[in-house]
Nucleic acid binder design. Structure first.
Length: 488
RNA sequence: CGGGGCGUAGCGCAGCCCGGUUAGCGCGUCUGCUUUGGGAGCAGAAGGUCGCGAGUUCGAAUCCCGCCGCCCCGACCA
């Protein structure tokens, strides 16, 4: 019996890496900084994607697809935008290879240099707003509510599976509106969609907030975010929604005729979540034995492990049980593999985070029971066959609720209000989590705090109470507390 | 871009310092039998350009030089 996953207490970072790989979520690839998302990991992502996609459509959005490549000149049209992304762009300079003279393999053909280099999209605002210019003439064309599911590339210096990779999958919504109010409303609406998804589907409690200037998206007027807390006390930005004002409309000259026959620039939003959510999901709930998945996103919600004592009638009962569960919409896997013993399978499905495991053997058949084990608490009970389906349905709900409550309790315990610099530093070093403190509102102070403690302002919570206080670092007057944390 | 580590069977590693016949070990894989309510046991088998290139040597996984790749830790970021 080998503990193949490093414990969280020993090395949290290594635990995460072990878990992602041993649970079959993802693997390193032959390309530096890029990962392979494996079938089990992709199945979880598909569940996230499908759920979000429905939520986007329910709020009036449609999907489209824009090019992977962006002409270099586009990117530089919005000053802040290029400033933010310039340092991490992959650039396509040539379009052809040829055999090397010395037969050593293929080389880039120097005669095939592109007139204008193409940037592999780090995000699509520029190509999309360049397109929107042609699509929008009148207020009747608005609002334009489009989402795309795509891959993007950001050439990161330091990568971590799911949390930060050179290439990642995401969705990016890009909307155009006639008024600022409407665009802001959209920005907030999508933030709420993300928060709802995080809390109700991922069982991940989040703080909704607004970013300070330092943390704002390059090119945005305001960046809203949902911030989650991981088990090691570090914060993770799980989703962002930006009010872009008229910045991109002006950069790409997207004007429309208003109902009063005047000409105005379009108001914009963009919003996105990525495969980073996979990392959040893992780090929020899982333990030293493996993943703990919320039932709503688990590829298999129930696994049935037969205890193969020599009794053929087991299989009939198992199939019948599986069918009854499936009839209630539950995703069931029956593990009929006869290579591994039950004990191995128990450990295996715990590693994979399957919420509910049913053990069925001759003893159960005789007693009219099934052994029901729940992954979140690792408890087991013997449940009568009669009413089993109802029991499992209720249990899945309970697990979904329980892991949310557990994560929320941890999160709430780790929002610490502090009023002195000593307390601030001490809390970061010993307890971690969010530290709620007054701040004088300047970027200079935020930078200084970051330099001294590695903590950044994760957000100004949306429902923040206004209270007079003095900045934790400078002592200058402040009107509200903000949330600091060390972050991924 | 700095600092560190690694590259030997599908996976994880030992061997390298101190060169020497046929390169080992664990897991996994394959075959057979016995097993099966918490990670099975026994017996047998298959599986290797020792990252790449050049060099020293009678002889290189091991020593020298060069290169490549990945990971981890720090400065930038969802």
């Amino acid at each position: 019996m080998s503990k193949e996953i490093t414990s969280r207490a020993d090395d949290y970072s290594q635990w995460y890496i072990d878990l992602v790989r041993k649970a079959g979520l993802a693997d390193y690839s032959a390309v530096k900084g890029c990962m392979v998302i494996k079938p089990y990991g992709f199945a979880i992502w598909e569940n996230m994607r499908d759920t979000l996609d429905k939520m986007f459509k329910d709020t009036g959005h449609v999907n489209a697809y824009f090019p992977l490549f962006i002409p270099k000149s586009f990117l530089s049209k919005e000053a802040a935008h290029i400033e933010g992304f310039a340092k991490e762009c992959a650039v396509v300079t040539h379009y052809r290879l040829k055999n090397a003279e010395d037969g050593s393999g293929v080389v880039v053909d120097p005669d095939a240099k592109l007139e204008e280099e193409l940037i592999v999209r780090p995000t699509s605002e520029t190509i999309i707003w360049n397109t929107y210019r042609d699509w929008i003439q009148s207020y009747r064309d608005l609002p334009l509510l489009i989402n795309q599911w795509a891959n993007v590339v950001r050439w990161e210096m330091r990568t971590r599976l799911f949390l930060r990779t050179a290439e990642f999958l995401w969705q990016e919504g890009h909307t155009a509106h006639a008024t600022a109010e409407e665009a802001i409303e959209e920005t907030r609406r999508m933030l709420d969609v993300y928060a709802t998804f995080a809390e109700e589907w991922m069982a991940l409690p989040v703080v909704r907030g607004i970013k300070t200037a330092n943390e704002r998206f390059a090119g945005a007027v305001d960046t809203y975010c949902i911030e989650a807390l991981m088990q090691d006390g570090k914060a993770l930005q799980a989703g962002t929604s930006h009010f872009l004002g008229q910045n991109f409309a002006k950069a790409f000259d997207v004007q429309f005729s208003t109902a009063h026959n005047t000409l105005d620039y379009v108001w914009a939003t963009s919003w996105g979540v990525s495969t980073r959510l996979m990392g959040a999901l893992v780090m929020a709930h899982s333990d030293d034995d493996g993943l703990i998945l919320p039932p709503k996103l688990a590829p298999h919600q129930v696994v049935i492990v037969p205890i193969p004592k020599p009794l053929e009638e087991l299989s009939g009962f198992i199939e019948q049980t599986a069918a009854a569960l499936r009839a209630r919409g539950i995703r069931v896997k029956v593990d009929n593999d006869d290579q591994n013993r039950p004990g191995f399978k128990f450990a295996e499905y715990e590693k994979l985070g399957v919420p509910v495991r049913l053990g069925i053997g001759a003893r159960d058949l005789a007693n009219g029971t099934v052994e029901v084990a729940r992954r979140d608490t690792k408890s087991k009970e013997s449940v009568p066959t009669e009413g089993l389906v109802d029991h499992v349905v209720a249990l899945l709900d309970d697990i979904q609720r329980n892991i949310f409550e557990r994560a929320k309790a941890y999160r709430d315990e780790h929002i610490t209000p502090v009023d002195s610099w000593e307390e601030f530093v001490h809390t970061l070093d010993t307890k971690g989590g969010f530290v709620s403190a007054h701040w004088d509102g300047t970027s200079e102070t935020e930078d200084r705090i970051k330099e001294e403690t590695k903590a950044t302002i994760r957000c100004i919570p949306l429902d923040n109470v206004q209270e007079a206080g003095s900045c934790i670092r400078t002592g200058k007057p402040s009107t509200q507390r903000v949330l600091f944390a060390r972050a991924y």
